[in-house]
Amino acid sequence: MSLATPEIQLDQISMTYQTNDTEVLALQDVSVDIQKGEFVSLLGPSGCGKTTLLRIMADLIQPTGGEVTVDGSSAREARLAQKYGIVFQSPVLYDWRKVKQNINLPLELMGIEKKEREQRVDYLLKLVGLDDFKNKYPWQLSGGMQQRVAIARALAMEPEILLMDEPFSALDEFTRERLNEELLSIWSEVNNTVVFVTHSIPESIFLSDRVLVLSPHPGRLSAVMEIPLPRPRTKEMRNSPEFFQLITTIRNSFEGV
C-alpha cells in the first residue's frame, strides 16, 4: 500500500453502551489507517462491533474513547462536508418515488440545479445497470436491484468515502456473488474509498484490498489481512487454491482459534 497520509485514521476507538443494570463494552482500542482509494472490509461474527465501528466512522454515533480523523479533519467535519455515502443493510427506498426519483432525492435536498441533477442521475442509472428501470417503483424490483438503487443514491453526491453495512446479506448466494462483481465494476469507475461490513469470509476476500478482522465481543482488531489477488477480480478466482488458502488463513486469525 501507499505510504501517503491515510484518508481515514482510527485511533484507539472504544465504545461502551450503558444498559439498565450494567455497561457493555462493544469495541476496545481499535486503531487502523485506511488509504485513499482502498477497498477495506470489516469482518467478524455477529455482535463483534462491525456496524458500530462503521457508524462511528460516519459520525452517526460518538465513541466513548478514541478519535476518528478523515483527511486531517474530524468525522463530524467530514460528514458535514458530504464526504460520506452510506449504504445500509436494507435499501430504505421510498415506495412512492420512482427509481430515478429515489436516486435524485439527495441532490434535491442539497439544492443542486435541475439540469445537473438529471445528468448525474442518468449517469448513475447507467453505472448500476438500471437505465431501463428508471420509471419503475421499488416494489417492482428484485432485492438485488433495490440495493443497486441504494448504491446509486449513496453515490449521488459524489462522496469520497462509501460506507456499506452488510448491503448484500439478505440476498441469496447467487445474487450476492453477482452484486459483488457489479460493485467492483462500479468501484473501478468511481475510484472512491470503500469500507464494507460483512460476516462472510469469501465475500471479504473477493472484494477487498485488506480485511480487518474483528474478534468476538468485545470487538478488537484481531488481524489485518492483505489480499494479494490481482485486479480485476474474476468469478474464477473464487475456485482457486489461493482463494481457499486465504479463507483458511482468515478463519484461523480469529482469536481463540
Results as ranks from 00 to 15, higher is better:
Tyr137Leu: 02
Glu181Cys: 04
Ile227Ala: 09
Arg231Met: 08
Gln119Asn: 14
Met145Asn: 00
Arg238Glu: 00
Trp139Val: 07
Leu171Ser: 02
Phe243Lys: 03
Leu107Trp: 09
Tyr123Ala: 10
Leu107Lys: 03
Glu116Ser: 09
Tyr94Val: 11
Met164Arg: 10
Val128Ser: 05
Lys235Asn: 12
Leu80Trp: 08
Asn104Phe: 10
Arg76Val: 12
Lys235Gly: 12
Arg117Gln: 15
Glu182Trp: 01
Val257Glu: 12
Ile227Val: 15
Phe254His: 06
Asn191Pro: 00
Leu171Lys: 06
Thr248Arg: 07
Arg238Lys: 15
Asp29Ser: 12
Arg153Leu: 07
Leu127Pro: 15
Arg210Pro: 00
Val190Ile: 15
Gln28Ala: 05
Gly72Gln: 08
Leu27Ile: 06
Arg120Cys: 01
Ile13Trp: 04
Asp172Cys: 05
Ile86Ala: 13
Asn191His: 11
Glu189Arg: 11
Lys83Tyr: 07
Val32Met: 11
Glu158His: 11
Leu184Lys: 00
Ser90Thr: 14
Met225Glu: 15
Lys115Gln: 14
Met110Ile: 10
Ile247Ser: 01
Asp131Gly: 05
Leu109Asp: 06
Ser142Thr: 01
Val99Met: 06
Thr175Ile: 03
Ser222Gly: 01
Leu162Asp: 02
Ala81Ile: 04
Ile34Leu: 08
Arg148Gln: 02
Glu23Asn: 13
Ala150Ser: 14
Ala4Arg: 14
Val99His: 03
Gly44Met: 02
Asp71Ala: 15
Val224Leu: 10
Ile247Ala: 01
Thr52Met: 12
Ala223Tyr: 11
Asp33Val: 07
Leu127Lys: 02
Arg76His: 12
Asp33Trp: 00
Asn102Trp: 02
Ala58Cys: 02
Ile161Met: 09
Ala154Glu: 06
Ser2Tyr: 08
Pro138Gln: 07
Leu184Pro: 10
Val121Trp: 01
Ala81His: 12
Val194Phe: 06
Thr69Pro: 05
Val24Ala: 03
Ile13Gln: 02
Leu54Thr: 05
Leu93Val: 06
Met237Cys: 11
Val194Ser: 05
Gly143Asp: 01
Gly66Pro: 05
Gln18Arg: 15
Glu181Ala: 09
Leu162Gln: 05
Leu127Cys: 09
Ser200Cys: 05
Met15Gln: 13
Gln82Thr: 10
Leu141His: 01
Pro241Arg: 04
Val257Phe: 13
Cys48Ala: 06
Thr64Tyr: 04
Pro232Cys: 06
Glu203Phe: 06
Phe254Pro: 00
Lys100Gly: 00
Glu177Arg: 14
Lys100Met: 13
Ser253Glu: 10
Asp165His: 00
Gln62Gly: 07
Ala223Val: 11
Glu182Gln: 11
Arg76Gly: 03
Ile205Ser: 03
Leu229Tyr: 06
Trp187Lys: 10
Gly72His: 02
Pro106Ile: 04
Gly49Asp: 10
Ile151Ser: 08
Asp71Ser: 14
Ser142Lys: 03
Met1Lys: 10
Ser2Trp: 09
Leu10Phe: 01
Leu3Trp: 07
Ile34Gly: 00
Glu189Gln: 14
Lys136Trp: 03
Asp21His: 12
Trp96Tyr: 14
Asn20Asp: 15
Trp187Met: 09
Met1Phe: 09
Ala154Trp: 08
Cys48Gln: 05
Ile250Phe: 03
Lys98Thr: 14
Ile250Met: 04
Gln245Leu: 13
Val87Lys: 04
Gly65Val: 06
Pro138Gly: 04
Arg176Ser: 11
Thr51Ile: 01
Ser73Ile: 08
Asn252Ile: 03
